[in-house]
Simulated scan of single mutants.
Amino acid sequence: MSERVEAAATGTGPGRLLVAVYGVFALAAGARAGVQIAARFHEAPVAYLLSALAAAVYVLATVALALGGRVSRRIAVAACSVELAGVLLIGTYSLADPASFPDETVWSAYGRGYGFVPLVLPVVGLAWLWRTGRSGRAGENGTRTSAS
């Protein structure tokens, strides 16, 4: 008989700090995008919509990391991957063609306006998901183990 133990929860231990940082970024990016869209949308619509997209990705990552189930883990991996791709693509594009970004987004210049945390956060998130996922993988005898 094989005992099945789920992978370590993503929202426990150091994962709580990760969830908190994602939550703060969701709130910060969402509030900033909301004000910019409501007050100055005509000035830089693409930049402000990208900030709103970043906020939505942060909300999704926050919830998925906090829940930590199998489906939530997959959603968190997707959210962190989209976030990393976004910050790399938008960061590069905003530096290569600054005229296209008359105002900064969360991801422009690799998150320079946020202390480069948007560049580091998805890497940390993906590393945490990998680490907690590995602790629940099958052991040598074919049963799943969990890290203690």
Rank of each mutant, 00 (worst) to 15 (best):
F101V: 06
I75L: 07
F101D: 11
A55Q: 04
C80I: 02
L129W: 05
L84G: 13
G30Y: 11
A64M: 01
G113S: 13
A8R: 15
G115M: 11
S72T: 03
R131P: 00
G23E: 01
V63D: 00
A109P: 07
S94T: 10
Y93H: 14
R40T: 12
A127N: 01
A20C: 00
F41I: 10
T132Y: 05
Y93M: 08
A26S: 01
I37D: 12
A55L: 06
V82A: 13
R16K: 14
F25K: 03
A85T: 11
S135M: 14
L67G: 13
F116I: 10
A29W: 03
A64C: 02
P118I: 09
R112G: 09
R40F: 02
A96K: 11
S108W: 07
A47M: 01
W130A: 12
V82W: 08
L60K: 01
G115I: 11
S72Q: 11
A56Y: 09
A33N: 01
L50R: 06
L53V: 12
L65Y: 00
S81A: 13
G13K: 06
S135Y: 13
L27R: 01
S100D: 04
Y110K: 08
I75D: 00
Q36Y: 02
A64K: 04
A76N: 07
V124M: 00
A78V: 05
G136S: 06
L129C: 06
V82M: 14
R32T: 03
E43N: 05
A39M: 04
S135V: 12
P98W: 11
R137T: 15
G23Y: 02
A79K: 06
I90T: 12
A127T: 08
V57P: 09
A127Q: 03
D97L: 08
S51Q: 04
G13V: 04
E6Y: 03
R74G: 10
A38P: 04
W107F: 13
A9L: 15
F25D: 03
S94Y: 08
R16N: 02
R137V: 14
L17Q: 00
S94C: 03
R137Y: 09
R134G: 13
D97H: 09
A28H: 05
A52F: 13
V21L: 01
L89R: 07
L67F: 07
A138Q: 15
G86E: 05
G133L: 14
G136E: 07
L126E: 05
V106D: 03
P98I: 08
G133W: 14
S94W: 03
Y114P: 02
L95N: 15
G125S: 05
